[in-house]
Amino acid sequence: MTQFQTDPAPSRATTGATLLEVEDLHVEFRQRSGVVSAVNGISYSLAEGETLAILGESGSGKSVSAQAIMGILDVPPAVVSGAIRFEGRDMLAMSAEDQRQVRGPGISMIFQDALSSLNPVYSVGWQIGEMFRVHQGASRKEAKRKAVELMDRVRIPAAAKRVDDYPHQFSGGMRQRVMIAMAIALDPRILIADEPTTALDVTVQAQVMDLLKDLQRETGMGLILITHDLGVVNEVADNVAVMYAGRIVERGTVDDVFTDAGHPYTEGLMNSVPQVEAKGGRLQPIVGQPPNLAAIPSGCPFHPRCARRRLGAEAAPGRECSIDVPPLRLVASGREAACHYSEEVLGVRAV
């Protein structure tokens, strides 16, 4: 397969305590037209100081899984099951008030679209300061002072002068910094960043990601990065979970997964990235479209798009791609993939 070509990644090691454990998480949206299975039994953990990237196409379940962790899905129509343990406490077993107390100082989130996520009729300082007024009972004066400090911390120039400005008066990159300031206001143990660099130019993307890395080094927080940007993942993440049709189909260190994918979907993602040395060459897109989550294909959900699928007599017993659902299993040292034929994709012996 074509390897993902980037500059060598920095040394990546995390030895912190486990902050988050997601176990067999399911999210369904039950509607009159049927059931949409957005998340289908994902499990992973996050350690202190670790950056976990959740990678996949739009509609793979990345953002919905994050919203379930935050406890911000409307229930109903959403039905959430499984376990989400923050520092050992199952958030799905908590009352709504207890979940609210965890949001902010425990787990915080940067949402995709900074412009639509900010209220246009309130100044950015008022919106940042709301975190302190609500959670700490700060006065308006004290909240504004802390808002200026946070704006300085996320490197917004002339923060004291701009604290009373409104969202439309900021560039896209500066609005994203405002969102980061709101998310880190209460020094969360975990920060979820949902497509934090979408719609930003390359230079601003790098600035935003450098800022998140610096904040992580300062605080030791765990970071969950939700994205479809392979370059960002390669630069900043320690580990990666690749999602397709609401499932994790591959999991491992970024270095291992990006060097040699163990699932045909991951392989397709890597091969679809433009290569500097292949100027003028054709990209290798993944054929077909992501599945309808209200009608996920039987067997391996990726099989209708997979060039490696085996059907009928060509499949091994119990491993027919259109019938048998492949479990997420160990396929190499420290590597898990949900493919009946991962060892062939990797070119290694079965574990």
Rank of each mutant, 00 (worst) to 15 (best):
A206D: 01
A206Q: 11
A206C: 07
M209G: 03
D210C: 09
L211Y: 06
L211W: 06
L212W: 02
Q216F: 05
Q216E: 05
Q216P: 02
R217M: 09
R217G: 04
R217N: 09
E218D: 14
E218H: 05
T219D: 06
T219V: 04
G220P: 14
G220L: 11
M221G: 02
L223I: 02
L223W: 00
L223T: 01
L223Y: 02
I224G: 12
L225W: 05
I226E: 01
T227K: 14
T227V: 11
H228K: 07
H228M: 06
D229H: 14
D229R: 14
G231Y: 07
V232G: 06
V232K: 02
V233L: 10
V233S: 08
V233R: 06
V233N: 08
N234P: 10
E235C: 03
V236Q: 04
V236L: 08
D238R: 04
N239C: 08
V240G: 01
V240E: 05
A241Y: 12
A241R: 10
A241L: 11
A241H: 12
V242A: 10
M243I: 05
Y244C: 02
A245T: 01
G246S: 11
R247T: 10
R247N: 15
R247M: 14
R247K: 15
I248G: 02
I248H: 04
V249Y: 08
R251F: 12
G252Q: 13
G252S: 14
G252E: 10
V254Y: 00
D255N: 13
D256W: 06
V257R: 05
F258T: 00
D260P: 00
D260Q: 15
